[in-house]
Simulated assay, not measured.
Amino acid sequence: MFQIDLVERCKANDRKAQLKLYRQYCEGMFCVAMRFLKDPDDAEDVLQESFIKAFQKIDQFKGEVTFGAWLKRIVINKSLDFIKAKKVRHVQLNENLLHIAEDEDWSVSDEISVAEVSEAMSGLPEKYRYVVQLYLVEGYDHGEISQILDLTETTCRTRLLRGKGQLKELLKAKRYGTGS
């Protein structure tokens, strides 16, 4: 069955179609939630809430992007909402006043594995980690990231640049200076 047919059946509240879409996307979306939450129980909760929201709002899905991309944005937003809800206190810096030069060089030493980069990313402060993760892992651009995180594009670019700098420092410390 074609995905668009499945989505249309879901719009008609067809439970079998909803179950089929759930089975098709649950594993991948669980991985997305885990990249943010790092806890399987929390990721499972967010995953369930995301699918409930997706099925409740499925009439808003217009097919401008794939269903998977639309659902992924819901999962990311729900993950970030979950993290925000767990925070007791949040201090925000006004980074809009800073001017940052773009630096598109994301190269690291060939000796550094993807697992090491991922581990180093988990050591970044949250405000940098989410921007770096959305940019590098999820493939969003500055405009999309700024919408998802409710930041200005300037703040997004600033946090990406700072996060990249901290990520490189973490990798250098781990490899004793073999990073670029």
Score class of each variant (00 low, 15 high):
residue 39 D to G: 05
residue 40 P to Q: 13
residue 40 P to S: 12
residue 41 D to W: 10
residue 41 D to I: 07
residue 46 V to T: 12
residue 46 V to W: 07
residue 47 L to T: 08
residue 48 Q to R: 09
residue 49 E to S: 14
residue 50 S to T: 08
residue 51 F to S: 05
residue 52 I to T: 13
residue 52 I to H: 10
residue 52 I to A: 06
residue 54 A to Y: 09
residue 55 F to I: 02
residue 55 F to K: 03
residue 57 K to R: 10
residue 62 K to D: 13
residue 63 G to H: 02
residue 67 F to D: 00
residue 68 G to E: 09
residue 69 A to H: 01
residue 72 K to C: 05
residue 73 R to S: 00
residue 73 R to G: 02
residue 74 I to E: 03
residue 74 I to W: 06
residue 75 V to G: 00
residue 75 V to D: 07
residue 76 I to Y: 03
residue 76 I to A: 07
residue 76 I to P: 03
residue 76 I to H: 08
residue 76 I to G: 04
residue 77 N to D: 06
residue 78 K to R: 05
residue 79 S to W: 01
residue 79 S to Y: 01
residue 81 D to N: 07
residue 82 F to I: 02
residue 85 A to P: 01
residue 87 K to N: 13
residue 88 V to R: 11
residue 91 V to L: 15
residue 93 L to R: 02
residue 94 N to P: 02
residue 96 N to T: 07
residue 99 H to V: 15
residue 100 I to G: 09
residue 102 E to D: 14
residue 105 D to R: 14
residue 105 D to M: 11
residue 106 W to I: 14
residue 107 S to M: 10
residue 107 S to L: 12
residue 107 S to P: 04
residue 109 S to Q: 06
residue 109 S to G: 09
residue 109 S to I: 03
residue 110 D to T: 11
residue 110 D to L: 10
residue 111 E to F: 11
residue 112 I to K: 13
residue 113 S to T: 15
residue 113 S to P: 13
residue 115 A to F: 10
residue 117 V to N: 08
residue 119 E to I: 03
residue 119 E to C: 05
residue 119 E to V: 01
residue 120 A to Y: 08
residue 121 M to Q: 14
residue 122 S to T: 15
residue 124 L to D: 06
residue 125 P to S: 15
residue 125 P to V: 05
residue 125 P to C: 13
residue 126 E to M: 15
residue 129 R to A: 11
residue 131 V to N: 04
residue 132 V to M: 04
residue 134 L to M: 13
residue 135 Y to Q: 11
residue 138 E to Y: 08
residue 140 Y to P: 00
residue 142 H to K: 06
residue 144 E to P: 07
residue 145 I to H: 03
residue 145 I to Q: 07
residue 148 I to L: 01
residue 148 I to E: 04
residue 149 L to C: 11
residue 150 D to K: 11
residue 150 D to E: 13
residue 152 T to W: 01
residue 153 E to P: 04
residue 157 R to H: 08
residue 162 R to S: 05
residue 163 G to V: 04
residue 164 K to L: 08
residue 164 K to S: 06
residue 166 Q to D: 11
residue 167 L to R: 02
